[in-house]
Protein backbone atom coordinates (compact mmCIF):
# COMPACT_ATOMS: atom_id res chain seq x y z
CA UNK A 1 0.00 0.00 0.00
CA UNK A 2 1.21 3.51 -0.77
CA UNK A 3 1.96 6.01 1.96
CA UNK A 4 -1.31 7.79 1.03
CA UNK A 5 -3.36 4.62 1.45
CA UNK A 6 -1.75 3.94 4.82
CA UNK A 7 -2.38 7.47 5.98
CA UNK A 8 -6.07 7.32 5.15
CA UNK A 9 -6.36 3.95 6.90
CA UNK A 10 -4.86 5.42 10.07
CA UNK A 11 -7.17 8.42 9.87
CA UNK A 12 -10.21 6.23 9.42
CA UNK A 13 -9.28 4.26 12.52
CA UNK A 14 -9.05 7.52 14.47
CA UNK A 15 -12.26 8.83 12.91
CA UNK A 16 -10.40 11.85 11.65
CA UNK A 17 -10.92 13.80 8.41
CA UNK A 18 -7.70 14.61 6.57
CA UNK A 19 -6.44 18.16 6.25
CA UNK A 20 -4.41 18.67 3.07
CA UNK A 21 -2.72 22.05 2.61
CA UNK A 22 -1.41 23.16 -0.79
CA UNK A 23 1.52 25.50 -1.25
CA UNK A 24 3.52 26.27 -4.35
CA UNK A 25 7.06 24.94 -4.09
CA UNK A 26 9.64 27.71 -4.09
CA UNK A 27 7.18 30.51 -3.25
CA UNK A 28 8.28 33.17 -2.43
CA UNK A 29 11.77 31.62 -2.52
CA UNK A 30 13.20 28.08 -2.55
CA UNK A 31 14.51 28.23 1.04
CA UNK A 32 11.02 28.73 2.49
CA UNK A 33 9.42 25.49 1.34
CA UNK A 34 10.93 22.62 3.35
CA UNK A 35 10.66 24.32 6.79
CA UNK A 36 7.12 25.34 5.82
CA UNK A 37 6.24 21.71 5.05
CA UNK A 38 7.43 20.64 8.49
CA UNK A 39 5.51 23.48 10.15
CA UNK A 40 2.35 22.44 8.33
CA UNK A 41 2.69 18.86 9.54
CA UNK A 42 3.23 20.19 13.06
CA UNK A 43 0.03 22.25 12.76
CA UNK A 44 -2.07 19.25 11.80
CA UNK A 45 -1.60 18.58 8.08
CA UNK A 46 -2.08 14.91 7.21
CA UNK A 47 -0.90 15.04 3.61
CA UNK A 48 0.97 17.83 1.82
CA UNK A 49 0.19 18.99 -1.68
CA UNK A 50 3.15 20.69 -3.26
CA UNK A 51 2.50 22.83 -6.32
CA UNK A 52 5.00 22.50 -9.16
CA UNK A 53 5.39 25.96 -10.73
CA UNK A 54 4.35 26.27 -14.39
CA UNK A 55 4.45 29.24 -16.74
CA UNK A 56 0.85 28.74 -17.94
CA UNK A 57 -1.33 27.57 -15.04
CA UNK A 58 -4.67 27.48 -16.90
CA UNK A 59 -6.75 26.03 -14.07
CA UNK A 60 -5.52 28.41 -11.40
CA UNK A 61 -6.85 31.71 -10.17
CA UNK A 62 -4.70 34.84 -9.80
CA UNK A 63 -3.41 33.96 -6.32
CA UNK A 64 -1.77 30.68 -7.36
CA UNK A 65 -0.73 32.13 -10.73
CA UNK A 66 1.30 34.77 -8.93
CA UNK A 67 2.81 32.12 -6.63
CA UNK A 68 3.99 30.24 -9.74
CA UNK A 69 5.47 33.43 -11.15
CA UNK A 70 7.36 34.14 -7.91
CA UNK A 71 8.80 30.61 -7.85
CA UNK A 72 9.75 30.80 -11.53
CA UNK A 73 11.62 34.05 -10.90
CA UNK A 74 13.93 31.86 -8.80
CA UNK A 75 14.06 29.33 -11.64
CA UNK A 76 12.37 26.61 -9.55
CA UNK A 77 12.06 23.52 -11.77
CA UNK A 78 10.41 20.13 -11.30
CA UNK A 79 13.84 18.70 -10.43
CA UNK A 80 14.24 21.39 -7.75
CA UNK A 81 10.83 20.45 -6.34
CA UNK A 82 11.90 16.81 -6.15
CA UNK A 83 15.00 18.00 -4.31
CA UNK A 84 12.77 19.74 -1.74
CA UNK A 85 10.75 16.56 -1.23
CA UNK A 86 13.87 14.54 -0.68
CA UNK A 87 15.12 17.10 1.83
CA UNK A 88 11.74 16.95 3.62
CA UNK A 89 12.04 13.14 3.76
CA UNK A 90 15.27 13.37 5.75
CA UNK A 91 13.17 14.28 8.78
CA UNK A 92 9.67 13.11 7.91
CA UNK A 93 9.20 9.65 6.45
CA UNK A 94 5.50 9.26 7.15
CA UNK A 95 3.62 12.30 5.83
CA UNK A 96 2.54 11.70 2.22
CA UNK A 97 3.51 14.31 -0.36
CA UNK A 98 1.46 14.83 -3.52
CA UNK A 99 2.84 16.89 -6.38
CA UNK A 100 0.21 19.01 -8.09
CA UNK A 101 0.80 20.81 -11.34
CA UNK A 102 0.60 20.61 -15.10
CA UNK A 103 1.74 17.92 -17.48
CA UNK A 104 4.41 19.71 -19.52
CA UNK A 105 7.26 19.77 -16.94
CA UNK A 106 6.69 16.02 -16.39
CA UNK A 107 6.41 15.39 -20.13
CA UNK A 108 9.72 17.06 -20.95
CA UNK A 109 11.50 15.16 -18.19
CA UNK A 110 10.12 11.89 -19.59
CA UNK A 111 7.59 9.75 -17.73
CA UNK A 112 10.07 7.02 -16.77
CA UNK A 113 12.80 9.33 -15.56
CA UNK A 114 10.27 11.40 -13.67
CA UNK A 115 8.79 8.32 -12.00
CA UNK A 116 12.20 7.06 -11.01
CA UNK A 117 13.37 10.41 -9.61
CA UNK A 118 10.06 11.02 -7.84
CA UNK A 119 10.15 7.63 -6.15
CA UNK A 120 13.71 8.21 -5.05
CA UNK A 121 12.77 11.62 -3.63
CA UNK A 122 9.86 10.14 -1.70
CA UNK A 123 6.85 11.46 -3.65
CA UNK A 124 3.59 9.62 -2.99
CA UNK A 125 1.09 11.02 -5.45
CA UNK A 126 0.88 13.01 -8.66
CA UNK A 127 -1.98 15.24 -9.74
CA UNK A 128 -1.56 16.79 -13.19
CA UNK A 129 -4.63 18.95 -13.62
CA UNK A 130 -4.52 19.01 -17.42
CA UNK A 131 -4.28 15.23 -17.75
CA UNK A 132 -7.65 13.47 -17.84
CA UNK A 133 -7.66 9.67 -17.44
CA UNK A 134 -8.20 9.25 -21.21
CA UNK A 135 -4.67 10.50 -21.88
CA UNK A 136 -3.05 9.14 -18.73
CA UNK A 137 -2.38 5.43 -19.39
CA UNK A 138 1.32 5.83 -20.10
CA UNK A 139 2.04 8.07 -17.13
CA UNK A 140 0.00 5.89 -14.77
CA UNK A 141 1.94 2.85 -15.98
CA UNK A 142 5.18 4.63 -15.12
CA UNK A 143 4.29 5.86 -11.63
CA UNK A 144 1.96 3.25 -10.15
CA UNK A 145 4.50 0.40 -9.94
CA UNK A 146 6.68 2.82 -8.00
CA UNK A 147 4.00 3.34 -5.32
CA UNK A 148 3.12 6.81 -6.60
CA UNK A 149 -0.64 7.24 -6.73
CA UNK A 150 -2.21 8.95 -9.74
CA UNK A 151 -4.72 11.44 -8.32
CA UNK A 152 -7.53 12.57 -10.62
CA UNK A 153 -10.10 15.33 -10.37
CA UNK A 154 -13.86 14.95 -10.48
CA UNK A 155 -15.73 18.15 -11.36
CA UNK A 156 -19.28 19.38 -10.86
CA UNK A 157 -19.72 18.87 -14.61
CA UNK A 158 -18.55 15.22 -14.59
CA UNK A 159 -21.21 12.73 -15.67
CA UNK A 160 -21.77 9.42 -13.84
CA UNK A 161 -19.99 7.67 -16.68
CA UNK A 162 -16.94 9.90 -16.31
CA UNK A 163 -16.98 9.51 -12.52
CA UNK A 164 -16.69 5.78 -13.01
CA UNK A 165 -13.83 6.12 -15.48
CA UNK A 166 -11.97 8.50 -13.17
CA UNK A 167 -12.47 6.33 -10.10
CA UNK A 168 -11.23 3.30 -12.05
CA UNK A 169 -8.03 5.11 -13.02
CA UNK A 170 -7.34 6.71 -9.63
CA UNK A 171 -5.64 5.38 -6.55
CA UNK A 172 -4.80 6.96 -3.19
CA UNK A 173 -7.80 9.27 -3.18
CA UNK A 174 -10.00 11.12 -5.65
CA UNK A 175 -10.18 14.89 -5.62
CA UNK A 176 -13.58 16.53 -5.98
CA UNK A 177 -13.39 20.06 -7.39
CA UNK A 178 -16.11 21.77 -5.40
CA UNK A 179 -16.78 24.73 -7.71
CA UNK A 180 -17.14 25.29 -11.43
CA UNK A 181 -14.18 27.53 -11.82
CA UNK A 182 -10.56 28.08 -10.98
CA UNK A 183 -8.65 27.75 -7.73
CA UNK A 184 -9.52 30.43 -5.19
CA UNK A 185 -13.07 30.87 -6.52
CA UNK A 186 -15.56 32.29 -4.04
CA UNK A 187 -18.88 30.55 -4.57
CA UNK A 188 -18.75 27.27 -2.65
CA UNK A 189 -22.20 25.67 -2.22
CA UNK A 190 -22.07 23.06 0.53
CA UNK A 191 -25.43 21.48 -0.31
CA UNK A 192 -24.35 20.75 -3.88
CA UNK A 193 -21.07 19.29 -2.71
CA UNK A 194 -22.88 16.93 -0.34
CA UNK A 195 -25.12 15.69 -3.14
CA UNK A 196 -22.14 15.08 -5.44
CA UNK A 197 -20.22 13.24 -2.74
CA UNK A 198 -23.05 10.75 -2.38
CA UNK A 199 -22.94 10.21 -6.14
CA UNK A 200 -19.15 9.75 -6.20
CA UNK A 201 -19.20 7.22 -3.37
CA UNK A 202 -21.39 4.96 -5.46
CA UNK A 203 -18.41 4.59 -7.81
CA UNK A 204 -15.50 4.09 -5.45
CA UNK A 205 -14.27 2.92 -2.08
CA UNK A 206 -11.36 5.36 -2.28
CA UNK A 207 -11.33 8.34 0.09
CA UNK A 208 -12.71 11.51 -1.50
CA UNK A 209 -11.00 14.84 -0.86
CA UNK A 210 -12.68 18.16 -1.57
CA UNK A 211 -10.90 21.30 -2.70
CA UNK A 212 -11.31 24.66 -4.52
CA UNK A 213 -12.94 27.57 -2.71
CA UNK A 214 -12.45 26.41 0.91
CA UNK A 215 -11.26 29.67 2.40
CA UNK A 216 -12.18 29.58 6.10
CA UNK A 217 -12.35 27.31 9.13
CA UNK A 218 -16.18 27.39 8.89
CA UNK A 219 -16.15 26.17 5.30
CA UNK A 220 -13.52 23.56 6.17
CA UNK A 221 -15.78 22.29 8.93
CA UNK A 222 -18.79 22.08 6.64
CA UNK A 223 -16.79 20.19 4.02
CA UNK A 224 -15.40 17.82 6.67
CA UNK A 225 -18.95 16.63 7.30
CA UNK A 226 -19.20 15.22 3.79
CA UNK A 227 -15.62 14.58 2.61
CA UNK A 228 -12.72 12.41 3.74
CA UNK A 229 -10.21 15.21 3.22
CA UNK A 230 -10.33 18.99 3.17
CA UNK A 231 -7.90 20.54 0.69
CA UNK A 232 -6.96 24.19 1.16
CA UNK A 233 -4.68 26.20 -1.11
CA UNK A 234 -5.43 29.76 -2.15
CA UNK A 235 -6.13 30.99 1.40
CA UNK A 236 -2.62 29.85 2.41
CA UNK A 237 -0.90 31.07 -0.73
CA UNK A 238 -2.53 34.46 -0.29
CA UNK A 239 -1.06 34.73 3.20
CA UNK A 240 2.35 33.71 1.84
CA UNK A 241 2.07 36.48 -0.74
CA UNK A 242 1.28 39.04 1.97
CA UNK A 243 4.36 37.97 3.90
CA UNK A 244 6.69 37.61 0.93
CA UNK A 245 9.00 40.39 2.15
CA UNK A 246 9.36 38.78 5.59
CA UNK A 247 9.72 35.06 4.78
CA UNK A 248 10.60 34.14 8.38
CA UNK A 249 7.00 34.96 9.35
CA UNK A 250 5.48 32.62 6.76
CA UNK A 251 5.72 29.24 8.54
CA UNK A 252 4.16 30.45 11.84
CA UNK A 253 1.40 32.35 10.01
CA UNK A 254 0.46 29.34 7.86
CA UNK A 255 0.63 27.06 10.90
CA UNK A 256 -1.82 29.35 12.65
CA UNK A 257 -4.38 29.15 9.81
CA UNK A 258 -4.02 25.37 9.63
CA UNK A 259 -4.39 24.96 13.41
CA UNK A 260 -7.69 26.78 13.42
CA UNK A 261 -8.89 24.68 10.48
CA UNK A 262 -7.70 21.53 12.22
CA UNK A 263 -9.68 22.43 15.34
CA UNK A 264 -12.80 23.21 13.33
CA UNK A 265 -12.53 19.96 11.36
CA UNK A 266 -11.95 17.86 14.48
CA UNK A 267 -15.19 19.13 15.99
CA UNK A 268 -17.05 17.21 13.29
Amino acid sequence: MSRIGERFKQLEQKGRVALIPFVTAGDPGPAVTVPLMHAMVEAGADIIELGVPFSDPMADGPVIQRASERALEHGVSLRDVLGMVSQFRQQDTSTPVVLMGYLNPVEIMGYESFAEAAQEAGVDGLLTVDLPPEEADELVAAIKPRAIDPIFLIAPTSSEERMQRICDAASGFVYYVSVKGITGAGHLAIGEVAAKMAQIRKHTQLPVGVGFGISSAEKAQAIAQVGDAVIVGSVLVKRIEELRETPEEIAPAIAQILSSMRQAIDLV
Binding site: M58, A59, L103, V129, D130, L131, P132, E134, E135, F152, L153, I154, A155, P156, T157, S158, S159, R162, I166, V177, K180, G181
Partner: peptide, 12 residues
Protein backbone atom coordinates in the same frame (compact mmCIF):
# COMPACT_ATOMS: atom_id res chain seq x y z
CA UNK B 1 -3.48 16.74 -30.42
CA UNK B 2 -5.73 15.04 -27.88
CA UNK B 3 -7.55 16.49 -24.92
CA UNK B 4 -5.42 17.90 -22.13
CA UNK B 5 -7.71 20.03 -19.99
CA UNK B 6 -8.94 20.05 -16.44
CA UNK B 7 -11.85 17.78 -15.66
CA UNK B 8 -14.43 20.59 -15.51
CA UNK B 9 -14.05 21.14 -19.27
CA UNK B 10 -14.26 17.49 -20.35
CA UNK B 11 -18.06 17.31 -20.51
CA UNK B 12 -18.48 20.72 -22.18
Amino acid sequence: GGLFVSETLMEP
